[in-house]
């Protein structure tokens, strides 16, 4: 099993799950992570392809995914649309919208053939080729590095910044926030935009690094898995990071078994999900305690 493959697979899960975490802790469940990743993936391909710079693609992905987050924020926070409905609606907009954009640009509904291929910048560690772990890290895309940094960054945000405090307060005791003269909705806006930003990065990794090009529906449920990882990680930064990474590992394990054994594909492909169910079951009691600790009733 290749560590570099695991890193590549885990990065989108980690980033998107972190995005879901920020939104969720601010009191907004981001069920639209799937759509944000999808539109981010397309925007990345277009940005990088037409400008010739991978970073522009990354930026485009971030902007477009944040735009979707803004739609969600406007409709949920201001126009009081039901959160889950609005999230599912954003996913529909992404599923249909990506294909319509693709169609208008290339006349194709399936993939981005015909758009110049771009690639995310890669960061290499000089002289790391022969050091076991570093060798796998070296040459990974900038997004993989960002995913690695996301844990300390989130922890810093959580415990050392006001925004982190506000985000947690927005989800846990809104009244405290209001009493300190803050508007919970502004905090939720910030959390949602950050969530979109992270999901956009995750999408860019899928379409500019792991593969080069966009294919319709290519996110294939990874956004929902990221949401699941966040809950599995008990809605904490470390837990979310570990759970999301675990999905990367399980993907890789399934792939190895698919290539090296003759097990039924359907059984192998469901391994990650069954594993999560088991972990969820075994961890259930502990999770419940954690949740109760968060402040509230389970």
């Amino acid at each position: 099993m290749l560590l570099s493959t695991i890193l590549q697979n885990a990065a989108p899960y980690v980033l998107a799950a972190t995005g879901c975490l920020l939104a969720d802790r601010a009191g907004v469940v981001n069920i639209a992570s799937e759509g944000m990743m999808l539109f981010g993936a397309l925007a990345a391909v277009l940005g990088a392809g037409y400008s010739g710079f991978g970073l522009v693609g990354l930026l485009a992905a971030i902007v477009v995914a944040s735009l979707l987050a803004a739609i969600l924020a406007i409709f949920h926070l201001h126009l009081r649309a039901n959160l889950i409905l609005a999230g599912l609606a954003v996913n529909l907009l992404a599923t249909g919208g990506t294909v319509l954009v693709l169609y208008s640009l290339t006349g194709r509904t399936g993939d981005s053939s015909g758009i110049p291929q771009g690639s995310l910048p890669e960061i290499a560690i000089p002289g790391a080729e022969h050091v076991p772990v570093l060798a796998s890290l070296s040459g990974q895309s900038i997004v993989v590095w960002l995913a690695l940094i996301s844990l300390p960054a989130t922890l810093y945000l959580w415990h050392r910044t006001r925004l982190g405090l506000y985000i947690r307060a927005a989800g846990e005791s809104e009244s405290a926030l209001v009493e300190s003269g803050l508007r919970p909705n502004r905090v939720r806006w910030a959390a949602l935009l950050l969530s979109g930003l992270l999901c956009g990065m995750a999408g860019a990794q899928l379409s500019l690094s792991t593969t080069h090009g966009f294919v319709r529906d290519m996110v294939a449920g990874r956004g929902f898995i990221a949401l699941g990882a966040m809950y599995l990680g008990a809605r904490t930064p470390v837990g979310t990071f570990v759970a999301a990474s675990l999905f990367g590992v399980l993907d890789a394990v399934a792939t190895v078994l698919q290539v090296r054994t003759n097990f039924s594909t359907q059984i192998l492909l469901s391994i990650p999900y069954v594993a999560i169910l088991l972990a969820l079951f075994l961890n259930g009691q502990r999770l419940r305690r954690v949740r109760r600790g968060i402040g509230g009733v389970s």
Binding site: L2, T5, N9, L206, T210, T211, G213, V215, R216, D217, M218, A220, R222, D251, A252, T255, V256, Q258, V259, T265, Q266, L269
Partner: peptide
């Protein structure tokens, strides 16, 4: 397992 999952395709191919 899908006709629209290039990421899985990349993984399988890299493993092979």
């Amino acid at each position: 397992g899908s006709f629209a999952d290039p990421v899985k395709g990349q993984n399988l191919a890299a493993q092979m």
